[in-house]
Deep mutational scan, measured.
Amino acid sequence: AQASVVANQLIPINTYLTLVMMRSEVVTPVGIPAEDIPRLVSMQVNRAVPLGTTLMPDMVKGYA
């Protein structure tokens, strides 16, 4: 199964992502692939992302 990117903490709206904020986990539904974690660093979330939430492409500015 493919691992997705999951929030490792509460990520406030407009926060620039860093490695410590994200982890990879096999979840349903599938979100942003874990292999894209390096690409996500320094990208901004466009909403608050609670701890344990799967990151979806529409949550990250400029990802989709």
Rank of each mutant, 00 (worst) to 15 (best):
A1P: 15
A1K: 03
A1R: 02
Q2R: 03
A3H: 10
A3N: 14
S4K: 02
S4M: 02
V5T: 12
V6D: 00
V6K: 05
V6M: 05
A7D: 01
A7V: 08
N8D: 15
N8R: 08
Q9T: 14
L10E: 15
P12N: 07
P12D: 12
P12H: 08
P12V: 05
P12Y: 04
N14E: 13
N14R: 06
T15S: 13
Y16P: 14
L17H: 00
L17T: 00
T18S: 15
L19M: 11
V20Q: 12
V20S: 15
M21R: 03
R23E: 06
R23C: 04
R23Q: 05
S24K: 05
S24F: 12
S24T: 09
S24R: 05
E25F: 03
E25K: 03
V26E: 15
V26F: 13
V27G: 03
V27N: 03
T28I: 11
T28G: 06
P29D: 08
P29F: 04
V30K: 04
V30R: 03
V30E: 15
V30M: 07
G31H: 02
G31Q: 03
I32Y: 02
I32R: 01
P33S: 10
P33G: 10
A34W: 10
A34T: 06
A34E: 12
A34D: 14
E35I: 05
D36T: 07
I37R: 07
P38D: 12
R39I: 14
R39Q: 12
L40N: 00
L40P: 00
L40T: 01
V41H: 07
V41T: 12
S42M: 12
S42W: 04
S42E: 06
S42F: 08
S42Q: 13
M43P: 00
M43T: 09
Q44W: 04
N46A: 10
N46H: 13
R47V: 07
R47K: 10
V49N: 01
P50A: 15
P50N: 09
L51V: 08
L51I: 13
G52I: 02
G52T: 03
T53S: 13
T54N: 02
T54Q: 05
L55N: 00
L55P: 00
M56Y: 07
P57V: 06
P57L: 04
D58Q: 11
D58C: 04
D58H: 10
D58E: 12
M59P: 01
M59H: 13
M59W: 13
V60N: 01
V60H: 00
V60W: 01
K61C: 13
K61R: 13
G62C: 05
Y63C: 03
Y63L: 05
A64I: 13
A64V: 06
A64W: 03
